[in-house]
Computed example of a mutant assay.
Amino acid sequence: MATNQEEVKLLGVVGSPFVCRVHIALKFKGVEYKFLEENLGNKSELLLKYNPVHKKVPVLVHGEKPLAESLVIVEYIDETWNNNPILPSDPYQRALARFWAKFIDDKVVGAAWKSVFSVDEKEREKNVQEALEGLKFLEDEIKGKKKFFGGEEIGLVDIGGVFIAFWIPIIQEIAGLQLFTSEKFPNLYKWSQELMNHSVVKEVLPPREPLFAFFKARYENLTASA
């Protein structure tokens, strides 16, 4: 069994929202770790060894025991280091947090991504609608809450939602979309500003300009070949 004193390594890439989730959880808990930057065009032996199933990042390695999938990793971090809880102690509230974190991945992340980076126009429109529906549910869920989905402090849903707060504004600006705005989703937008101003989140968010340039080039290549 890995003890929480054993070495912690995180394999990832700087611009990934999924890797960012793990950075946030580790920093929030005050865990010391080594970040190993991967090149996904030329995957390291280490990545292939530790995540032979998906060959994707992030991968957390704790005491030589690897774990993949960002939300699974965040829960593991929460259970391994007891300070600054990420999940509520109440079983029902814990289950709800898991539900909404998974909802973000199932209903918002993929749809928002494809609404920009899909070649087919009909496919793009379908995904815009799906992303808007997902954001509407989250808008209703955050309404009347404290600062975050987790209350006064960030929790699993907030960490899962970093894609909405930071990545969606970048990709929608590139594509000229009005997907996530303060007019459409005032409560969710206010939450996103609180999240990005949280000291831990601020520390680990990737620099916006290089990320914007990277996605813009990708978008232009896509539209040029369409």
Score class of each variant (00 low, 15 high):
residue 147 K to W: 13
residue 93 Q to N: 13
residue 121 E to K: 15
residue 59 V to H: 09
residue 129 Q to E: 15
residue 124 R to H: 03
residue 132 L to S: 14
residue 66 P to A: 06
residue 127 N to W: 00
residue 135 L to E: 06
residue 104 I to H: 03
residue 173 E to S: 14
residue 130 E to C: 13
residue 180 F to W: 01
residue 65 K to Y: 14
residue 112 A to P: 01
residue 111 A to N: 05
residue 127 N to Q: 12
residue 162 V to D: 04
residue 125 E to G: 04
residue 127 N to F: 00
residue 122 K to L: 15
residue 150 G to Q: 08
residue 78 D to L: 11
residue 142 I to H: 09
residue 100 W to T: 00
residue 78 D to Y: 09
residue 182 S to R: 11
residue 139 E to P: 09
residue 90 D to H: 03
residue 186 P to E: 08
residue 168 I to D: 01
residue 106 D to W: 15
residue 121 E to D: 13
residue 176 G to Y: 04
residue 113 W to F: 15
residue 118 S to L: 11
residue 151 G to W: 05
residue 55 K to P: 01
residue 166 F to E: 04
residue 134 G to S: 04
residue 186 P to H: 12
residue 165 A to Y: 10
residue 97 A to K: 04
residue 140 D to V: 05
residue 150 G to D: 11
residue 153 E to Q: 14
residue 121 E to W: 13
residue 102 K to Y: 09
residue 116 V to P: 03
residue 148 F to I: 11
residue 172 Q to W: 09
residue 126 K to L: 13
residue 122 K to P: 00
residue 182 S to D: 14
residue 181 T to L: 02
residue 159 I to C: 09
residue 86 I to T: 01
residue 174 I to M: 06
residue 57 V to L: 02
residue 135 L to Q: 02
residue 93 Q to F: 07
residue 152 E to R: 06
residue 185 F to V: 11
residue 167 W to F: 14
residue 99 F to Y: 13
residue 72 V to G: 08
residue 91 P to I: 02
residue 108 V to A: 07
residue 66 P to I: 11
residue 93 Q to A: 15
residue 86 I to V: 04
residue 127 N to V: 12
residue 130 E to G: 04
residue 167 W to C: 03
residue 181 T to I: 03
residue 64 E to Q: 15
residue 158 D to M: 07
residue 81 W to R: 11
residue 149 F to C: 01
residue 116 V to Q: 08
residue 72 V to P: 03
residue 174 I to F: 12
residue 166 F to K: 03
residue 166 F to C: 04
residue 69 E to R: 09
residue 192 S to V: 04
residue 68 A to L: 00
residue 148 F to W: 10
residue 55 K to S: 02
residue 171 I to L: 11
residue 68 A to S: 14
residue 103 F to Y: 00
residue 101 A to W: 10
residue 120 D to C: 08
residue 126 K to G: 13
residue 86 I to A: 05
residue 68 A to D: 08
residue 107 K to H: 08
residue 149 F to Y: 00
residue 166 F to Q: 09
residue 69 E to Q: 12
residue 124 R to W: 08
residue 127 N to D: 10
residue 62 H to M: 12
residue 125 E to N: 12
residue 107 K to I: 06
residue 78 D to W: 12
residue 192 S to E: 06
